[in-house]
Simulated assay, not measured.
Amino acid sequence: MILVTGATGVVGREVVRRLPSDLGVRVMVRDPGQAAEFAGSGVDVAVGDFGDAASLARAVDGVSAAFVVTVRIGADDDVRFVRAAQRAGVERVVKLSAAAVLDQGSVDLVTRWQRANEELLRVSGVEWTLLRPRAFMSNALGWASSVRGEGVVRALYGESACACVDPRDVAEVAARVLAQPGHAGRAYTLTGPEALTAADQARQLGQLLKAPLRFEELTRGAARAGWLRRYPAAVAEALLESAERQRAGVKTQVEDTVRVVTGRPPGSFREWARDHLEAFAPVRQEPGSVPAGS
């Protein structure tokens, strides 16, 4: 039995889709309502929370391998999971971390937390594999509203490049590592095939939409304000530090790991954008229709 946490997230959902059904797949979800997504799929559903030891114990019972995604920055969710895995005899844990742990000078809250979680797993006595992706291409969905409504992409340091990765490629690597032997004690840095700037991505989106998009550079203050509306202050500051590292050029290195593990090259941003173009396309009114709210 393979357990997937974060199964309704951008990577976890794709991991579940890619795992061979004959291995037995269980997902851990916090909300019972999320279980409906997996109805009829043959996937076992465990309702659980990293903060609830009893529910964790139920989730890992009978599990041989687990994919672990934690998102509460600074919390001890990884500690709780590793303890539960040790007690249950889980043989292998595949941990979603981040490429930032390798960046020299990266000491922000998020990166320190990820490094601590990696070290926790290394000394746990459980077989482990670390996945360290660069930024997800799907982060571009944060522009969807402004692209649809204004034809604008706004970002901080729009001419700084990052070798962002398709989260579907991360999921494919995770599924193979979970299902196949030979990955114990390895840390895989995962990137896309090239380093792109936000301005590059805006140009490619515009080409696919057949409508040029305007790029607008955000100030640090505007970027901070936007992140503070979504995240705690310490996380917003960590994101600003991350942007500064990208501006310094530390996120441009392209790795061949996706091809080595999966046997195929990583997907490009253009391919990802083409597959998600509906999210960016303006809503078209049918001829003669009355606009909503009229």
Rank of each mutant, 00 (worst) to 15 (best):
I73V: 15
D77E: 14
V45L: 05
A57S: 14
K95S: 15
D76H: 13
V68R: 04
V79S: 13
A46G: 08
S41K: 08
V94P: 02
F67V: 12
V90L: 07
V71F: 02
V94F: 09
T70F: 01
V60P: 01
A75L: 04
A46P: 00
A54I: 01
F50P: 01
R58L: 14
G62C: 07
L56K: 07
A54Y: 00
A100E: 07
G42A: 13
V68N: 03
K95G: 10
G48M: 05
L56V: 04
A98E: 11
A65R: 14
V71M: 09
V60K: 14
V82M: 08
S41G: 02
Q86K: 13
D44A: 15
G40A: 09
Q86A: 12
A98V: 15
A100W: 02
A75V: 01
R58T: 15
A66H: 03
V43Q: 10
V63Q: 03
R58G: 14
D61T: 08
R92A: 11
D78P: 00
A46V: 11
V43W: 04
V68M: 05
A46Q: 10
G48S: 07
V94W: 07
S64V: 10
V94C: 09
V82A: 08
V60C: 14
V43M: 10
R80N: 14
E91Y: 02
S64T: 14
G74Q: 06
V71C: 03
V47Y: 07
A54V: 13
G74P: 02
D77H: 14
V63A: 04
V71A: 14
D61C: 08
A98D: 15
V82E: 02
S41F: 00
V93C: 10
I73K: 03
D76G: 12
I73G: 01
A57L: 03
R80T: 03
L56T: 03
A54F: 00
G42L: 10
T70E: 06
L96F: 08
G42H: 06
S97I: 09
V82I: 15
F50E: 01
A54G: 06
A99E: 06
D76W: 00
D77N: 12
G48K: 05
S97L: 11
G51I: 05
V94H: 09
K95P: 00
V68W: 02
S97F: 08
V71E: 02
D49S: 15
E91L: 10
R72S: 12
D78H: 07
V47E: 06
D44L: 13
V90W: 03
